[in-house]
């Protein structure tokens, strides 16, 4: 039987990871225009002030092994481009699921939370930060001006959440958040 929570405890293991409180994971393909909003936000945050207890990560897509990284944290915030909203961005809770059909290299955030629970016995509080994008069709490495503006607003909001430490607490919750005029004060517990 595998020690699911302690596989990486052996000193020096190549897959050892630190346990932190919050993981922010941006995903998307930077060569598909606004699809790269998630990685772009992570890239900008990596150049910004250091955030205590926060792990920043990015990839093209969410994949199954991310369930391991997620299980090393208490809170995870997924960041992705979105076309389903007219808002610059929105922020909402995502709940674990064991959805029956998924693509191995493009796993949904909800499924990863479910895998963290069922595979590694760790319940992780999950949030999704969706940032509105507009141009996806061609190989293009830059964000559109509109998406860049939305990214700035989403980043400001995210910093405000992290500074308040509200997203990292387990005795409260951030309600679903959506606004055309992002204002940190509107985020309520």
């Amino acid at each position: 039987m595998i020690d699911r929570q302690g596989f990486d405890k052996a000193k020096g293991s190549c897959i050892q990871e630190r346990s932190e409180r919050c993981l922010i994971f941006g995903y998307g393909n930077p060569a598909r225009g606004d699809d790269g909003l998630g990685p772009a936000l992570i890239s900008q945050m990596e150049k910004g002030p250091e955030l205590q207890g926060v792990t920043l990560d990015s990839n093209y897509q969410l994949t199954v092994e991310d369930s391991w990284s997620i299980a090393r944290h208490d809170v995870v915030i997924f960041v992705d481009a979105d076309t389903s909203t007219d808002l610059p961005f929105y922020f909402k809770r995502v709940e674990p699921t064991s959805e029956i059909s998924f693509s191995s290299h493009s796993v949904k955030a909800e499924v990863l939370l479910g895998m963290a629970e069922s595979l590694f016995g760790k319940t992780v509080r999950g949030y999704f930060l969706g940032v509105r994008g507009y141009q996806f069709d061609m190989f293009k490495e830059d964000l559109s001006p509109e998406a860049s503006a939305n990214l700035e607003k989403a980043k400001d909001f995210l910093y405000s959440v992290l500074k308040s430490d509200k997203a990292l607490k387990f005795d409260g919750d951030l309600r679903d958040y959506a606004t055309t005029k992002p204002n940190p004060k509107e985020v309520k517990i």
Partner: peptide, 28 residues
């Protein structure tokens, strides 16, 4: 017909974890 069904079946519980760990090893 889903990996979580595999993970939650006591007969095969380790398989899904092995898959994640091997994937992680390769990624590292």
């Amino acid at each position: 017909r889903h990996v979580i069904a595999v993970a939650t079946d006591p007969r095969f519980a380790d398989l899904a974890v092995q898959g994640v760990m091997m994937r992680k090893y390769g990624q590292e």
